[in-house]
């Protein structure tokens, strides 16, 4: 065990605590008693070969799927029975592996959805949500596309818009599901920069990624899933050196 993960364990209350979460699809066990704790403000990496259950796990956290056994606690509260929109309102936001823009809306309008339904849902005075959306777009240099229909964006713009839309929900935990898939080197750096900046503002980030360089650069701690089970946990350097991880990825 490294010094860093020791710190996490001594923390009184992790932001996200997953205890023996199980998910089956028919006879197939996608998640098999997964335990995980993510600390407030942490940069957490989740890796694993295709079909290992990464996306299933974050679907269970965000509420897109319901886990069958175990518990998911977010800042001390059990959320595993809540519908997804309630979890978003409590501070869990996510981006999608395959971007899911609201295609009939412009980029700016895409951001208005979480602003109206999460951030300002109880505001009696009508706040200037458009200005707020514009601010978020400026912070990730997407402001020039504000009026563009979201079905006319390039891949990197789509990825950035997904992150912006997640940010507009004012999350405490942001789950980035392969936000860098299909991007070029420079674009990966740009998205990584955005995530680092978000983390500096205090947002906890779980990154799921196949691009190893990116996860290893970004994460303070990495967990590797294989066939629905956590096979290894540690700092990026220990993970890369781990024999189980190498076997899972290379099949050696």
């Amino acid at each position: 065990m490294t010094e860093w993960s020791f710190d996490v364990q001594t923390m009184t209350e992790p932001l996200l605590k997953i205890t023996s979460v199980t998910k089956r699809f028919g006879g197939f066990t996608a998640l098999d008693g997964v335990n995980l704790a993510v600390a407030q403000g942490e940069r957490f990496g989740l890796i694993g070969p295709n079909g290992s259950g990464k996306t299933t796990l974050i679907n269970c956290i965000s509420g897109a799927l319901r886990n069958e056994g175990g518990s998911i606690q977010f800042s001390g509260e059990e959320v595993s029975k809540l519908p997804a929109y309630q979890r978003t309102r409590r501070g869990i936001a996510r981006s999608f592996q395959i971007p899911r823009p609201f295609t009939s809306m412009t980029v700016l309008e895409n951001l208005l959805v979480p602003l109206e339904f999460v951030a300002h849902r109880n505001s009696l005075l009508r706040p200037d949500t458009r200005a707020e959306a514009m601010e978020i777009l400026q912070s990730i240099s997407l402001a020039d596309k504000a009026g563009t229909p979201s079905n006319q964006l390039s891949q990197v713009e789509l990825r950035k818009m997904e992150l912006a839309r997640a940010m507009a929900a004012r999350p405490r935990l942001l789950i980035s599901d392969e936000a860098m898939a299909g991007l070029s080197g420079n674009e990966i750096d740009e998205v990584l920069g955005i995530l680092f900046k978000l983390n500096e503002t205090g947002i906890t980030i779980i990154m799921i990624e196949h691009i190893m360089q990116a996860v290893m650069r970004f994460s303070q701690r990495v967990v590797c899933l294989d066939a629905g089970k956590i096979i290894c946990e540690g700092t990026p350097t220990t993970i890369v050196a781990n024999a189980d991880v190498q076997r899972a990825y290379l099949g050696a």
């Binding site: 897109a64 978003t88 609201f102």
Partner: peptide, 15 residues
Amino acid sequence: RAIRDNEEAAECTGV
């Protein structure tokens, strides 16, 4: 409209 465009994404943005 968000529901029509993508229901999962709508739910995950708080709708």
